[in-house]
Design a protein around this nucleic acid. Structure first.
Lengths: 227, 227
DNA sequence: ATCAATATTTAGGTATACCATAAGATCGTA
DNA sequence: TACGATCTTATGGTATACCTAAATATTGAT
């Protein structure tokens, strides 16, 4: 109330800086697989492609480097980070711990409003799955989890999980679509949603664990094929 | 073997870049409390103090921003991140999960060599505690956990925990020294070490949980006092 | 004396210029 | 022909210059 009372009258006035735009663009390029692991990120080339100066590109690279999406080898410049199965397995292990805990916490506090949000997210997810819209599926899955983490109040854990997800994004895109080995992805999610709507923390945690166990297994298979 | 065979003959030739040096220097300044939470980081001032150009400082800030040590508010520039109890609690929760899991995994695989490393780290920790050397204690505690995570093969989890630790560093320094409420810090560590040396995963995990529960409780008290 | 309008300063955002180094190409000699 | 030395170029590291916006101080008028 002590702030400016008419936030919605503000001029559009681009609150996002050019640097943030470029960071996001490069992050998407890496996550979406447009840049492959091991690709060199040549500054001047990126500058030309993006139409910005080196300062902007370099600062974006520094940010992505700290995120683990880019690695800078001394005197050779930055390259897109690669991930072997050992690293991917560790990330799935961490996600299992954090997501199970978040789902349990969410189940403990879930009220009608949260349950509604969750069901809606699940609906989107289902829709994307049947349309075989891979990108939409990815976003919907992310949204589903975002609802869970946010409702649980696990904001920092969500931050951590999002970061890690960026590093296994290509795997994730693959596992999401091919996830019909044991149970399809949405079926897993439905179980999680159901457990939370029943306010059953242990069942929610268990559902998450089994989903991630499946995903990790598929990822392992895919990674071994790819190499 | 396919590399240059005489690494030790190499010219000093500073393999670390100026930017990395500045990043580390600023990180230390924040972690050690020389910069307080909420302090503005004025680029040109930092340039003068560090004797480098703005490019270097800005890239370092971007890196620390991604690490969560610095926050950039739109149109006001970067400030040192602050942490309230809600954030700190979340970080302790995440640490509890990851460290308990790592300790259990370590207990499963610990052989004589790992046990020896752990005991040595514990010795250092004890020494620092009795010398009341706060900085040394901090480093020794970090080393102790590094041994555990490394032995468990949880390298990425260690990365995550280290990041998060940076964000609660001031709290951590305080809890370490004042940790003699229920059991002193080294006593907790000794229990963890013992459980791992007994190859008892569940006891190790439990010891970690009780240590962190204690630490979080102390932190909460301190944070409430400080505000 | 107070309020408002303008000038000044400060700081961040962006672009560019310069330098050093490492890898690759070219040319000369054995 | 093959090896080596030198030159070129591509690339990253570093410094600086310029612009815009916001905050603050200053000055003038009521």
């Amino acid at each position: 109330m002590d702030q400016t009372p008419d936030d919605d009258l503000r001029i559009a006035h681009s609150p996002t800086t050019l640097r943030e735009l470029v960071t996001e663009k490069m992050r998407q390029a890496i996550i979406s697989g447009r840049f492959n692991g091991g690709d060199r990120l040549i500054e001047r080339t990126l500058c030309d492609q993006l139409g910005v100066s080196r300062s902007v590109v370099r600062e974006a690279i520094r940010y992505l480097e700290a995120e683990g999406l880019v690695e800078s080898v001394s005197r050779a410049g930055p390259v897109v980070a690669t991930l072997d199965w050992n690293g991917a397995r560790q990330i799935y292990d961490i996600r299992r711990l954090l997501e199970a805990e978040a789902a349990a916490a969410c189940a403990r506090v879930a009220d009608a409003s949260i349950k509604a949000q969750l069901r809606q997210a699940l609906g989107e997810l289902d829709k994307a799955f049947h349309q075989e819209a891979s990108l939409h599926l990815y976003a919907a899955t992310t949204d589903f989890y975002r609802v869970i983490f946010t409702a649980a109040g696990h904001l920092i854990a969500w931050e951590v999980v999002s970061r890690l997800n960026g590093r296994i994004s290509r795997l994730r895109a693959l596992t999401l679509s091919s996830s019909n080995r044991r149970i399809s992805g949405p079926a897993h999610m439905a179980r999680i949603c159901q457990a939370i709507c029943d306010n059953d923390p242990e069942a929610a945690a268990q559902a998450v664990r089994s989903h991630l166990g499946d995903a990790a297994e598929i990822a392992q298979t895919l990674l071994k094929d790819a190499r």
